[in-house]
Design a protein around this nucleic acid. Sequence first.
DNA 1: ATAATTTTCGGTATCGTTGCCGGCAAGGTT
DNA 2: AACCTTGCCGGCAACGATACCGAAAATTAT
Lengths: 343, 343
Amino acid sequence: MDKQATIKDIAKQLNISISTVSRALRNATDVKSDTRKAVLALAEELKYEPNRLAISLRERQTHTIGVIVPNLDYVLSMMVRGIDEVALEAGYTVMVCQSNESFGREIVNTRRLLDSLVDGFIISVSSETKSFEHFKKIQERNLPLVVFDRVTPDLVAPSVRIDNEEGGFLATEHLIEQGYKHIAILAGPKNLGISNKRMQGYLNALKKYKIKKVDSLIIHCDFNQDYAYHATKELLLHKKRPDAIFAISDRMAIGAMLAIKEHGLRMPEDIGLVGFNNEPVTVLVTPQISSVDMPAFELGKAAAKLFIETIHNTESVIHEEIVLRPKLLVRASSQKIKIKNAK
Amino acid sequence: MDKQATIKDIAKQLNISISTVSRALRNATDVKSDTRKAVLALAEELKYEPNRLAISLRERQTHTIGVIVPNLDYVLSMMVRGIDEVALEAGYTVMVCQSNESFGREIVNTRRLLDSLVDGFIISVSSETKSFEHFKKIQERNLPLVVFDRVTPDLVAPSVRIDNEEGGFLATEHLIEQGYKHIAILAGPKNLGISNKRMQGYLNALKKYKIKKVDSLIIHCDFNQDYAYHATKELLLHKKRPDAIFAISDRMAIGAMLAIKEHGLRMPEDIGLVGFNNEPVTVLVTPQISSVDMPAFELGKAAAKLFIETIHNTESVIHEEIVLRPKLLVRASSQKIKIKNAK
DNA sequence: ATAATTTTCGGTATCGTTGCCGGCAAGGTT
DNA sequence: AACCTTGCCGGCAACGATACCGAAAATTAT
C-alpha cells in the first residue's frame, strides 16, 4: 500500500490508454459509458487520487495561499482563522508563516513561500519592516498580494484593515469626555503604520477639543507588554504625570496597567486607561480595560475574499481598499463619570 | 517578467543542452568550469529559481509538513512556533491547519494536506475526536506521523507530550499540602486523553494522602472558559462545596475564578485554585493563579525534531515517546499557608 | 454497398527537472 | 600506432497528468 495508484496503473490493468483513463475521470465527453464505468470502478478500488503536484506543474498553479503574519497572538490567530475559513471554501489551502516581528525572518518566509510556488500572498507586515523589496518581488512575478491589518502606504496593494484613525479618535474622545486632561499615548515603533494612524486619531481628538499636544506624553516603544510597562513607569514619574493613557494595543495596555498598579494609582479615579483590540484578557483583569474592538475574524474573511477576487481578475489590476469600522467598548478602566440610570 | 526563467531558457540562450545546465547548477562534476561559469552567470541574470513542483514530482517529496492543531490559543501557537523553528532549519515548510476542535474539520484538513502531498504530519487531535480512521489513512500511506501534546493510546505513533499525570499530581498534592480538604477537579471531555491523565494524577494524589474520592467533585465539561464558569457556579451551590479547585487548563481556571468571585468567595482563604499551562494571563488576574507550567515552545521543537528523525529513518519504524516534565508554579490563588521567611 | 459522419480511442507533446547511458574528443600509456 | 582512460556533453526517459490531433471503429446517410 506504499505507493499511491496512478492513472497509468489503471490504464495498464484495463488495457486501455492513459489518455482514455484521464478523459474518463474528468471529461464527460469522448468516452464510452462502459469504459468510463470500468475506469471509475477500478479507480475506486485502487483508491486512486490525482497527484496534485503533476496537476500543479501543468496548470502552473498550486491552489495554495501563502500567509505571513508577525505572530499568532489572539487577534492575528482570529484573522488567520477567518482567512482559513474563506480559503478552504474556495478550494485553497493556506500556508501560515510567522515572521516573529523580524524583518529577516519575513524575507526568509517570503522566499520559502515563493519557492513553494504559492498562488499568491496574504500578508500582515512585521513591525520591524522598513523596506519592502521582498514583497515587491512578489508583485514583479505578477502574483496577487493582499495586505491586511498592518497596511502601509509604502506597499501598494489591495488591502483590508480597520479604520485605525477612527479607532484612535474614539478612544481619545472618550477619555476627554470623561474629564481626563493630560492624556498620554503609548504608541508603537515609528515606522508602524497602524500605530501612526491610531496616533493620528489621538491627535485629531485633541485638536477637536482644543487640547494642546504635549510631546512628552507621546511615547514610542516596542509593540509589547514589557516595553509598555517600563515606558509607563517612567511616564508616571514626570512632574506633571498624565491622568489617562491610551495604549494602541491591549498588550501594551496590560503593561501600562501593571505599572499603574505598582505606582499605587487607582483606575479610573486617578488615571484612565483605554486599550485597542478588545482581547479577551481585557475583561479578566481588574479593573476591566476599555478597548477599541477589532473585528478580527471578519477582517480575515474579508482579506481572503479580496484575495480570491483578485486572483480571478488577473487581468484588471484592482487596488481595492476595504476599511472596517471599529467601535469602542467602555469598561471600568476609563469610566470616571458613573452612569446614573444604568440599565 | 511574468514567467519564471527555466533551465530550458538558459540552455537555449547558451546553445547547450538542458542536461548540461542542470549539471552545472547542481552537480560539481562532469562540467567544464567555463560552461559552469556561463550558466551560473546567466542564471543569476535571469533570476532563475528551480521549480520546486517539478523537483517534488520527481523526488516524490515536497519538503512540507502538515500540522493540524485544534486551535491557535497561546499554548498551541507557542508549540507551532517551536515546530516552525526546527522545521525551517531542516529545510521544511510547515502548513498549519486549525480543526477548531471539530472532528469533521479535522478530517477535511487531513484530506487537504494529503492532497497537497505533504511529506508527513505533526498533529494534536481535536477534543471532539473519538475515531482515528482519518489519521490511520496517513500511516497506511507510510507517511510519518508525529502526535504532540494531545496524545491518545488509540493512535499508535511517535509522540511528544508532557507528563500530564505528574502535572495533575503536583497540582493536587500542592492543594492538599496547603490544607485544602475537598478538592474538586474541572476536567475536560471524557474522551480527551490529556484530561484523563491529569485527572489520574489528581486521583493518585488523593490516594497518597488517603483522601476519599468524591464523585460529585469530579466535573467533566467542555474545554473552555464558559463551560468551566457554569460548572463552577453549580459546584459552589453544593451543600458541601469544595474548598479548592484544580482546573486542567488555565482557560477553565479563569472561568472558575469568575464564578468564585461572583459567589463572593476569597482566594486562597475560602477556596484554592490551580490551573494548567501557565498562560501569561494567570499572572494578570487577581489573585494570580497557580498553574502547572507547560514548556510549549520546547515541546513543539521536540515534536519537529522527532518528525525529522522519523522521516530519515523510514525503514525502521520507531515509536519513540518523548515525555517532558512539567513543574508547578505556586501563586496567590492557592497559597493559603504564608511563607514566613520569603526571600 | 459505399460514402459521410460521428463516436471513441491512442499517440504524442508538455509542464521543469534530474538520472542514466552512451558518444566523442583529448590526452596518456604501453 | 593501437589502446585505454578521462573529461565533457547531449539524448532519452521518467515523475503524473492533461490537451490536442489524428486515426480507427461504429454509426448513419445516400
